[in-house]
């Protein structure tokens, strides 16, 4: 059964499965250890906060699969018993930053972005989103122990209806401990007043929509030993390292598809139902313009409806005025009515033709040409339903091709029938 239709085939809202949209996707990292030449790095560990720290050093080497920490580890299968970690170069410290960029391949409605760290969590970082495939970026969330200083934003600002589409800065999740295994999880709708009525909130629907996610690590946590003499071992201990980057959400299809598929070009697109079209089912498919496109809701599927052109036209367009006049029922206007029909639904015969009532209006030959006599008729246009031509004085017949009773034919084409004396 198709989730987009109930048993009798009535359309209903449907949404794709909730997935980790980052899984298996390529992540571009602005810095990866050992990428150019093998490098040393050291891992700090301590039983718990305040206990003495121990430092063990290793080599990061891109040419050795056992020692490499590529960005691919961010979105590979996350095995807690065998963590694979991407790792940046050492001590890329503010004002320098390290960026991770992930393209989702299409618009997604993002529910959360999470990062599981192999290193201490950053002192400051920002999660951005793009809605135009990386052309422009919008902040999603700021994290910092010093929101005002680092990002000129208040810490934990209250979110109101007026600013629900703005990123907030918070000092939560910025503790340096645990030194490994810390998690940052950003929930896009957390604390947003309209979240409970998401269906009717275009603002939040827009807010959670993203085609790309970018994480910018802005400042490393340190123990303050990075500037001491012989600081090299210390600096070799400060880097960003993440084992798992997740982007939880659904392929955005506006309620008109239950899954996303790869199209011929290999791009991810919605498998649109309800006569909708486009990668996000965000418009009506051709010839289905009898009412404006709308997102589906829990109560109403808002499927697109075909124009009614009585099989006489292949194209139509939407007219808002007609739609309103019809009580928001029908606004389609057929284009290029064929078979000698006319009207917004190609439902009557055009001038010079009349209805053949022995055939339905949808029949190709529903309209017959008027057959008005070149001399007896006063014009070539006949009555739409009877085919009666306009006759000159004294002339009779549907086609005005004979004189009326009491009249006889004359020699004048102007007055073809004259009264019998």
């Amino acid at each position: 059964p198709d989730p987009c239709y109930d048993e009798p085939g009535t359309p209903r809202r449907c949404i794709p499965d909730f997935v980790n949209a980052a899984f298996g996707k390529e992540v571009r990292a602005s810095s990866t250890c050992g990428h150019k030449t093998p490098s040393r790095f050291c891992v700090l560990s301590s039983a718990d906060k305040g206990a003495e720290r121990t430092r063990t050093c290793h080599t990061c080497d891109a040419s050795d699969p056992r020692k490499y920490h590529p960005p691919a580890y961010l979105t590979d299968l996350n095995n807690p018993h065998n963590l694979t970690c991407w790792q940046s170069e050492n001590f890329v410290q503010f004002p320098q930053n390290v960026t991770l960029t992930l393209s989702l391949g299409k618009k997604f409605e993002v529910t959360y972005v999470s990062l599981q760290f192999c290193s201490p969590r950053p002192e400051s970082m920002v999660i951005y989103k793009s809605m135009d495939y990386g052309k422009t970026w919008v902040p999603f969330q700021f994290y910092s122990t010093q929101c005002r200083k680092m990002y000129n934003k208040p810490n934990r600002a209250v979110i109101t209806k007026q600013n629900e589409q703005e990123a907030v800065c918070t000092d939560s999740h910025t503790d340096m401990h645990p030194l490994s295994g810390g998690l940052i999880a950003f929930s896009t709708l957390d604390g947003r007043p309209s979240a409970h009525d998401f269906d009717n909130s275009p603002v939040l629907q827009d807010w959670v929509t993203a085609t790309d996610i970018k994480v910018v690590f802005g400042r490393l946590h340190t123990f303050g030993d990075e500037n001491e003499d012989d600081s090299e071992p210390a600096r070799d201990s400060y880097f960003y390292s993440v084992s798992d980057l997740q982007v939880g959400g659904r392929c955005k299809c506006n309620g008109h598809a239950s899954r996303c598929v790869k199209d011929r070009e290999g791009s991810l697109v919605c498998d649109c139902k309800h006569n909708t079209a486009g990668p996000e089912c965000d418009r009506c498919k051709p010839f289905h313009y009898d009412r404006p496109w709308q997102r589906a809701t829990a109560r109403e599927a808002n499927e697109c409806v075909a124009c009614n052109c009585n099989l006489h036209a292949r194209r139509c367009r939407f007219n808002m005025e007609l739609y309103k006049l019809s009580g928001r029922k029908s606004g389609g206007v057929c284009l290029n009515c064929r078979h000698n029909t006319a009207g917004r639904h190609c439902h009557y015969c055009k001038e010079g033709f009349y209805r053949d009532l022995s055939k339905p209006i949808s029949h190709r030959k529903a309209c017959k040409a008027c057959d008005c006599h070149p001399v007896g008729a006063a014009g070539k246009t006949c009555n739409q339903t009877t085919g009666q031509c306009p006759c000159k004085d004294g002339v009779a017949g549907v086609m005005c091709n004979r004189c009326a009773k009491g009249y006889q034919q004359s020699r004048s084409p102007i007055a073809p029938c004259i009264k019998i004396p």
Binding site: H373, V375, V395, S412, P413, P416
Partner: peptide, 24 residues
């Protein structure tokens, strides 16, 4: 009683050449 159809050959088209149907 059905009246005969108009006979195009009977009409005098002098002065009405422009009205004369092509096939007459």
């Amino acid at each position: 009683e059905v009246m005969p159809t108009l006979d195009m050959a009977l009409f005098d088209w002098t002065d009405y050449e422009d009205m004369k149907p092509v096939d007459t």
